[in-house]
């Protein structure tokens, strides 16, 4: 099944490969500001794809995925600054593994009770989880959430830091996309689709709904944590306020919605458009970013509830082209 799915989508893989090569070469030609913009796109797209693995595919919309950005960042940061290893690279690798493991463990513990909630109740419960973690990190001294953690500098001397982090984000985002792709085109992807459409009927058809939901929650949390850890290092200094950010949780949803919910190309397209819009086009108008995000959210729900990809598909179909049933 997985092999068939991969074969059926081989042109997507080729496209993604070309994109990856282009992105690997891009820092050689881009100005520092643009490197940072693309880095921001990679981070956002990675988060949105990680969110999509549960939210877009299975219809369980988390309003609090930033919980795992914060959890991963703080778990890794605390280990890294307390571990007695001379090599910063090795310390970073260990801390990253630890941070991801903490995210996976917390998600696995939370998964069974919280995934019994459906629709808005799951969404709000996740928002609550992210707030609890954020508040606790901020107010319990051992976590250093209000004081902050200074993270070691990792970039080799020969390399600009933004270029170094650019490549870390590229690897993480590409890995996330690959995981999302394998989930989507395989048997699990259809099972998640069935859960999204009608969970009780899915179970009646033999879909192991609990196992799939819990599994994807853990995968999504771990990937989100990984991106959070890299983000934290790119900042160099974290407080609970800089990683437990509700706007991160929101942006994942808005970007996915903008591009097309339930697809993989959608979150990437959405992240690209939004980051370019807010960082480049409206870079000087920081005051109204929130207004624009809100207005866009309203406009998308009202005008193109299936996102830009869905909108484009409708246009194509109206011109008489055939219907593709599942686009990646």
């Amino acid at each position: 099944m997985l092999v068939d799915g991969i074969r059926a989508h081989r042109w997507w893989l080729v496209g993604a490969g070309i994109g990856l090569i282009a992105l690997s070469l891009a820092p050689l030609f881009l100005m520092p500001f643009h490197v940072r913009v693309v880095q921001q796109i990679l981070f956002s797209a990675g988060l949105a794809v990680a969110w999509t693995i549960l939210g877009g595919f299975a219809g369980y919309w988390s309003f609090g995925n930033t919980a795992f950005i914060g959890l991963g960042a703080f778990a890794a940061g605390l280990l890294e600054t307390n571990i007695a290893i001379d090599s910063p690279t090795l310390a970073f690798v260990l801390a990253t593994l630890f941070g991801c493991a903490v995210c996976a463990a917390v998600a696995a513990l939370l998964a069974y009770p919280i995934l019994r909630l459906r629709g808005i109740y799951f969404a709000i419960a996740m928002l609550g989880v992210s707030q609890v973690l954020g508040e606790l990190t901020n107010n319990i001294d051992a976590f250093k959430g209000s004081l902050g953690i200074i993270l070691p500098k990792l970039a080799p001397a020969a390399m600009e830091p933004q270029v170094f982090y650019y490549y870390l984000f590229l690897v993480a985002a590409a890995g996330t996309l690959l995981v999302g792709f394998l989930v989507k085109v395989g048997r699990i992807g259809y099972g998640l689709l069935a859960i999204r459409e009608d969970e009780d009927t899915a179970r009646m058809l033999g879909v192991p709904t609990e196992r799939y939901k819990i599994g994807m929650f853990v995968v999504s949390a771990t990937l989100t944590g990984l991106l959070g850890i890299i983000y934290a290092h790119s900042l160099g200094y974290i407080t609970s306020g800089s990683v437990y950010r509700t706007d991160f949780s929101l942006n994942m949803i808005v970007y996915s919605l903008l591009g097309g919910i339930g697809t993989l190309a959608g979150p990437i397209l959405g992240s690209f458009l939004m980051v370019v819009l807010t960082q480049v086009v409206l870079g000087r108008l920081l005051d109204i970013h929130m207004f624009i995000t809100g207005a866009l959210l309203v406009a998308m729900v009202m005008l193109a509830p299936r996102g830009l990809l869905g909108f484009a598909e409708n246009l194509v179909r109206r011109r008489g082209a055939g219907l593709r049933t599942v686009e990646p």
Binding site: Y190, G191, L193, A194, E197, L205, G206, V207, T325
Partner: peptide, 16 residues
């Protein structure tokens, strides 16, 4: 599964 095609509906039966 309302938003899926007839084919995908049946395919989910076959996959599971």
């Amino acid at each position: 599964f309302p938003e899926l095609s007839v084919l995908d509906n049946v395919r989910i039966g076959a996959l599971f």
